[in-house]
Amino acid sequence: MNPLTALRRARRHLVVIAGLLTLAYMILPNVVVMVFSFNKPTGRFNYSWNHFSLDAWKSPCGAAGLCGSLGLSLQIAVYATIGATVLGTMIAFALVRYRFHGRGPVNSLIFLPMAMPEVVMAASLLTLFLNLGAQLGFWTILIAHIMFCLSFVVVAVKARVMSMDPRLEEAARDLYAGPVQTFLRVTLPIAAPGIAAGALLSFALSFDDFIITNFNAGSTVTFPMFVWGSAQRGTPVQINVIGTAMFVIAVLIVVAGQLVSGRRARAGSAS
């Protein structure tokens, strides 16, 4: 191949090359996290490679307080997801399906938390809790998480409900389904993907939140706060083990889901 053709070909695939480079940039830290989960660091910090070891994988809870914080984060994420999903779904339905006074202010109120740097929300919420003399901890974290996840649920569910044909619900009512039956048998199943998307997003946001939690946690330690603290005091290898395990499990679930839905679609069209 002469160099000119090679150059021309490279130019044609410029987008592909640039895109894959970006992807590498995004994946690189995960690879590092994974590789360093097999490290046996010399000091307290796990930043430079020493030699291969399975020690951390053998005792994932070996670092004091790590698994406790992980459990707490999961617990808060589950409750925050349930709370935000229920409240957000209700708002989304009201916004799409009903006419009412004050739609403008409601929309702004939904939008503003997303347009606000986290640190501002974190600081102002702390001011409230301090003024009320509230005990910082599990409940203040949960309250804060529901608050900032709510808007994202509204957006996700709203998009889905908006694209839903209102005639489907009319058809259900026409076919002898009362209001409750219509909601349970038609509206909810069809809105489910949007609600699921909102719930997943809530879970991820809550589980991974650091800034707002850091302000309002008091002495309670969630998983991100544990990682933050260890960045100051010394990073146990187990952090990398947990990070890698979550990454692998999540990717496996996604891939399995893809395979199942793909197979189901094929089976459906073949029957």
Partner: peptide, 20 residues
């Protein structure tokens, strides 16, 4: 009477078949 109590049924424009 609400629609689900009327002995009347409808074939909707673009059918409104339940996709799920």
């Amino acid at each position: 009477l609400p629609p689900h109590k009327r002995p009347v049924n409808t074939v909707f424009q673009s059918y409104a078949l339940f996709p799920h």
